[in-house]
Amino acid sequence: MAEALRLEHVSLSYGARQALDDVSFSVAPGRFCALLGPNGAGKSTLFGLMTRLLVTRSGRIEIAGHDVARAPRKALARIGVVFQQPTLDLDLTVARNMRYFAALHGLSGRAAAIRIDAALDRLAMRERAGEKARALNGGHRRRMEIARALVHEPDLLLLDEPTVGLDAMSRKAITAHVHDLAEDGLSVLWATHLVDEIGPGDDVVVLHRGRVLRQALASDIAGPAGLAEAFLEMTAEGGGA
C-alpha cells in the first residue's frame, strides 16, 4: 500500500531566502503525523506545495502514490485540506458551504448529500446544517471545515495550524476529533507549534528554518524531559543551523 504522503528532497527558495531545504519525510496510512515547527519554519510553504498552490522543481511530493507535479488532479482528489485561514462563506448555511465544496470536487445531487450528511455526522455537526456559518462559534466553524474536507473521502487530511485563535476547550475538542479520525484509518498531517496537541503515540516531524530536524515517534523525541523541552532545545537559537 502506498504511503499517504511522501516528500523527497523538497527545496524551495526565493532569491536569497531558502524557504525549504532538502525536506524529506513520509506519513504512513492511518497515522496521525504532527508537523511541528516554530513560526517561520516553513510549514505553510510546505502546505502550499502539497496543495499545489505553490510549485517547485526541486524534489518530489507524492500523495497516495500520485506525483503532485505529474498528476496534480489525481493527487488533489486524494487530499482534504483545512487551511490556517478560515475559508468559509459566512453568508451561506453550513449545508450550502458543504454542497459548494462537494461540487468543486465534482460531486452533486444525492451522492453529494449522502457524503455531506456522513461527514457532518462524523464531526457531530449534522444538527447545525441549516445554520449560517456566521452564527457558528470559532470551534464549530473549524469542525465544519474539517467535515467539509472529508466530503470527498480523501486518503490524507492536511491541517495547517487548525486551532489558531480557538479557546482551550475548542482546541482540545478539535484535536481529539482529528485523533479519532486517524484511529478510524485516515492519514493526518497536522501542522502546529503547540506540543500539547501531540499525543505520545503520534508521529512527529520537527521542521525548523526550512529543514527537517527529526522524524520519529513523539515519545521517542520527548525523552525524559518531555516533548516541549526537547522541541525547545532542538529549535533554540542555532539549533537548526
Binding site: T51, A77, F83, T87, L88
Partner: peptide
C-alpha cells in the same frame, strides 16, 4: 481572505 485557496485546490 483565503477562500480562493478552496477553489484553487479543487482537483478540476
Amino acid at each position: 481572505m483565503g477562500s480562493m485557496r478552496l477553489l484553487m485546490t479543487s482537483p478540476l
